[in-house]
Design a protein around this nucleic acid. Structure first.
Lengths: 234, 234
DNA sequence: GTCTCAACCAATTCTGAATTGGTTGAAGCT
DNA sequence: AGCTTCAACCAATTCAGAATTGGTTGAGAC
């Protein structure tokens, strides 16, 4: 019942003593300060007293603590939520598809601007290989590589990183599902023509075209995903 | 000089024996097969022989190996490049800014569609707090939270994850730099008005407006970054 | 020479102890 | 009683060294 910010029995002296220590002490790069037991001894106070003082400083936002880690000055690092497994638990295929629809067209747009001849030939190679694929497994590999090559063509490391993150998520979320159709992709699979439009647009430096084609393509994949309930590759 | 795919002295018998094992054996979920030493004993061949056979299978792409990890069936997982530290080493502030310019406007656009009243009031709170900020440190905190709230407003977990990734990258790349100006943000800091336009657009469900305003804002931040060489917050 | 094999190497994982902030319950003080 | 204190304990995390694993080498067998 007594969890007000500034508790009743807190010794103001210890708090100021602690503030002085923080101002003077040379902290390591990560801002970690000595363990409570050591710090209490160094300041000549009991651990309980020290913890009260630390509590008020934490309430003020001056420091943050975590079991097993330690006590640190500054702001608690925001829970970054960039861990694949954690993300995979909280999302679902539909949401992932929406994210792809938002991100990948913009990646294609950027790629149209910066793709090198090397990227273009790699794209062509992927397109050929997907057509030649004898199994869905092979098809998926080359399809994934095609999309990743587009991301590489942006020549932007953070963008590529985000693309990889989406891909990793895709694998993690789909994980455990079975592929319904063991046969190989039919020669008139919608993706072939759609990939062609995307690649052509990039070759022609048509940024808007590339973005639009990618959007169309992903919408088509989404439709398949909903209709057949299959883990449709793109 | 003798590194052809199918080496001279490879014992075909062992290879087929190994293939039979792979077809029959029940592998764990991750597709890892027993350590070479055990497998060699199980198949009744010497380790050197086994390794030759494994070598041909690896060349065929049937398996992949890594020191300390083990030998696995299937395709070697693509180097995902979604690790923050690795990314930070390979990128730079300019590239990061380009990535933000590509991604964040689209996030704002999506947010305009899906933001709830709760998000809107949170945005307003952040805007107020940035104006009240007494130090750059505080300003940055609320500014970061404002941008993250926009990402949250998309109600899309993968998108939020990617945003967090960008943010983590920003911290990692900027890490070690000093903030030149210890004073607090001036009341006519360009960001205030720009944030206002963004928030208003989201409130009005103006998707194009939100995207455009975010783009304008980030371009303004980019300009500051180039001009002043300061680690300009946005 | 060529092949074999045991020992060795380096990358990775595993495991158990040590560390750290958080909690509790008896003892002590007013 | 009412409150503080303190040592012991708890659970989360980190750390270090051993064990494991694919890769390499050099002496010896043929």
């Amino acid at each position: 019942m007594m969890d007000m910010i500034s508790e009743a029995g807190v010794n103001r002296g210890v708090v100021t003593q602690l503030r002085a220590f923080l101002a003077q002490a040379e902290l390591p790069e990560d801002g970690r300060l000595p363990p409570e037991r050591d710090l209490a001894a160094a300041l000549g106070v009991t651990r309980t007293e020290l913890r009260k003082a630390l509590g008020t400083l934490e309430a003020e936002g001056q420091i943050w603590r975590h079991v097993g880690k330690g006590t640190f000055v500054g702001n608690r690092p925001t829970d970054t939520l960039s861990d694949i497994e954690t993300l995979a638990k909280r999302t679902n295929p539909a949401e992932l598809m929406r994210a792809r629809l938002i991100i990948e067209p913009e990646i294609a747009r950027a790629a149209a601007l910066t793709a090198t001849p090397l990227h273009l030939s790699e794209l062509r190679l992927c397109q050929t290989r997907t057509r030649e694929a004898a199994t869905w497994r092979q098809y998926e590999n080359w399809d994934t590589r095609l999309h990743r090559t587009i991301a590489e063509a942006t020549q932007n490391t953070p963008l590529l990183g985000m693309f990889d993150m989406l891909n990793a998520l895709r694998r993690a979320v789909t994980w455990g599902r079975l592929r319904a159709n063991p046969v190989k992709p039919s020669p008139d699979h919608h993706s072939f023509a759609e990939h062609e439009v995307i690649i052509t647009a990039i070759e022609n430096r048509d940024m808007n075209g590339a973005a639009a084609a990618m959007r169309t393509h992903l919408q088509s994949v989404e439709r398949n995903l909903l209709t057949w309930q299959s883990d449709a590759a793109d």
